[in-house]
């Protein structure tokens, strides 16, 4: 039963990801991305990571896809219709291969731990507690990165001319 659901979700994820790359319509690509991300959320749910699954739905399903769609609708779609080639593809290939190798390596090293039968959901309180005690530094670094990105976005959005003003 779980295996069937897993293969279904994996198929949804992969087909969505394929759709993002293959389709010629940018809006379709964004919606295929949404499908793929929802599939990932389903896999999280299958792994008893309920909180992560809900975060995935909230952040990627709600916020990020909507912002991507917003940006696409603001641009002139016709100019980008049918644009398929991307000069950065060798770099992308390199990054994707590297990530794939890292994931395979991690899986091979850690696989005994993956097979543990007791796949219990981490209680939400425990998650919060460890996030703010054991992983506090990582948490703070992540929030700092987000803050930097926010400030950077504001500076970029203000544009060239207003940057000279104090």
């Amino acid at each position: 039963m779980t295996l069937v659901v897993f293969y279904l979700l994996a198929a949804v994820t992969l087909l969505g990801a394929m759709g993002v790359v293959v389709t010629r319509n940018v809006v379709y690509a964004a919606l295929a991305l949404l499908l793929s991300l929802m599939g990932v959320a389903g896999i999280y749910l299958l792994l008893f990571a309920e909180f992560l699954a809900l975060v995935q739905v909230l952040i990627y399903g709600g916020a990020i896809t909507v912002v991507i769609l917003f940006a696409i609708m603001l641009t002139r779609l016709r100019e980008y219709k049918g644009v398929m080639e991307n000069p950065q593809w060798p770099l992308g290939l390199l990054a994707a291969t590297a990530l794939f190798l890292v994931l395979v390596a991690a899986f091979l090293v850690d696989s005994p731990r993956m097979n543990v039968e007791e796949r219990l959901a981490v209680p939400f309180l425990l998650l919060g507690g460890s996030l703010f005690s054991q992983w506090a530094i990582a948490f703070e670094v992540a929030s700092l990165v987000l803050l930097v990105a926010l400030i950077g976005a504001i500076i970029v959005a203000r544009g060239e001319d207003s940057r000279e003003r104090p």
């Binding site: 909180f51 809900l54 769609l69 939400f124």
Partner: peptide, 18 residues
């Protein structure tokens, strides 16, 4: 996580509107 479930799921309807 009922409350969080509620928030996460209801956000998706924005995609339908867009």
């Amino acid at each position: 996580m009922g409350l969080f479930y509620f928030i996460a799921v209801s956000v998706v309807s924005v995609v339908g509107l867009v």
